[in-house]
Amino acid sequence: MGKVFAVLLTIITIVSAAIFIRHTWWMPPDISLHGVRIDHQMAETMTASGILFVLAQLVLAGFVWQYGDRKDGRTVKRFPGGATPMVAFASILVGAEVLTLTLVGSKVWAGIYQSPPDSGSLRIDVQAEQFAFYFRYAGADGAFGGTHPDLIDDANGNFFGLDPANDTTARDDIVAGSLVIPVNQPVLLTMHAKDVGHAFYVPELRIQQDFVPGLVIPLHFTATHTGKFELVCTQLCGLGHYNMRAYVEVKTPEEFTQWLKDQAAQQ
């Protein structure tokens, strides 16, 4: 029985690891400025813990194979050196790994979430609601109109609760259903939720952030490739959670300016 198990475990380990190594399923290509560092951190962690995974499983399989009771009257053997050297070795090894990964990783994290946004960022106001995202651009005056929850009226397209009648800055605000951004320009999102918690996740952009009702959360990033990508909601928000999505369209600066003009003309 031990041998059967050892063989099975070996096969499972090799197949599992092979699928990781061959990237049969893997992250989509990165299109963000900060993404390379995340991918790098991922690769480091994958290598280090992959080796430990294979080692641990194979040693386990090996012992199970080797030490099955063969009824030959053999006496049991002690683990060489007892627990202490092994504990010391393991603590140092894992401790060093933890330390390195934290040192590098916390910089990567700080670079995305703790750094101030670039002063030349394009600011976009994002609202998440059951079950859609809406994006608001400041328009020609460069200022966002104030929002009033009591004025929100989805049926008439006033998703943000703007008050154009009294609020001049709100009049030229552009509201869109897709996140359209220029390539290679830093973007600053101010994220808020209308009803319950949601989240912003674009795998290609290597970025994710929750929307929390009652809070306005800033998020900034720079896209480096043009194209059309999916933005999905990753925070359970109700029955349509699986259906809550929008497109992220990364355009060249010219296309983007044109798009803004078209939108302004429509509204």
Binding site: I38, Q41, T45, G105, V108, W109, I112, Y113, Q208
Partner: peptide, 8 residues
């Protein structure tokens, strides 16, 4: 456990 990977 690593925020920089948990992002993804």
């Amino acid at each position: 456990a690593q925020p920089s990977i948990d992002v993804y």
